[in-house]
């Protein structure tokens, strides 16, 4: 097993035995189950567009709580010094924490697959927006977790890390609104920075490389910056 594998095993164990993970999972599934049932009974329409937007909101609110400990806790307890003086690359440490958080979100999303199964069983849903929606949620999770890890790497205070992540998520969410106030070409830049703008196209069932590229590029860039923050001592 490589150093990344050893670190990932430790992070997965820490993530999946943490009460925070179970609280986040429980809140997510309870709220989504309630919303799904309510929407289905009222509209009698076999699509998940509304549900995907609910998941989007919940992820924006819950991911800061999930990622706030990542580095802030290691910094506070000085265990970060143990990791950073071991013969492993900083990138491996960052990637292990990123993948462990992503695994928890993937497990939550996997549990929510019960909703399309129910729709498929009782109705005839259009599957393209459902595939697109789940792909968008995975890509969104990558970006949110990477930003959450960056803020956690900048402080040893978990609350500060969570608040900073939430602030960044909300700024990105409403970036398209700010576009109306900006002169050219900044308006296009703000429009393209929008978290929700790239999400909505997936949920409609349209797949554009530019939308996937937005999430992947920003995720990779943020993970790289996190690595540099930790390496710069």
């Amino acid at each position: 097993m490589s150093a990344l594998g050893v670190l990932l095993k430790k992070e997965l164990h820490a993530t999946f035995t943490s009460p925070i993970a179970y609280a986040i999972g429980a809140v997510f599934l309870l709220v989504m189950g309630y919303t799904f049932s309510l929407t289905l009974f009222f509209t009698k329409v076999a699509n998940l567009t509304y549900i995907f937007h609910q998941m989007y909101v919940l992820l924006v609110l819950l991911v800061p709580v999930l990622t706030m400990r990542a580095f802030a806790e290691e910094r506070r307890t000085d265990t970060l010094e143990l990791l950073l003086t071991a013969p492993v690359s900083t990138a491996s440490i960052v990637l292990a924490k990123f993948l462990a958080s992503l695994a928890l979100l993937a497990a939550m999303l996997a549990a929510s697959l019960a909703y399309p199964v129910v729709l498929g069983f009782y109705g005839h849903p259009d599957w393209a927006p459902i595939y697109g929606g789940y792909l968008a949620l995975v890509l969104l999770s990558c970006l949110l977790v990477s930003v959450g890890m960056l803020t956690s790497s900048l402080t040893e205070n978990q609350v500060v890390a969570a608040a900073a992540s939430l602030g960044i998520f909300l700024m990105l969410w409403f970036a398209d609104s700010a576009a109306y106030l900006m002169p050219e070409p900044l308006d296009v830049f703000c429009l393209n920075l929008s978290l929700i703008g790239h999400f909505t196209t997936f949920v409609r069932g349209s797949l554009f490389l530019s939308d996937a590229g937005y999430y992947l590029t920003l995720s990779i860039l943020t993970l790289f910056v996190t690595t540099r923050v930790l390496a710069d001592r």
Binding site: A14, T85, A86
Partner: peptide, 16 residues
Amino acid sequence: RRHIGYVPESVPLYPH
């Protein structure tokens, strides 16, 4: 780093 064993002053350990 492969040649070093290190005990920081704060004795950092993973309590869980």
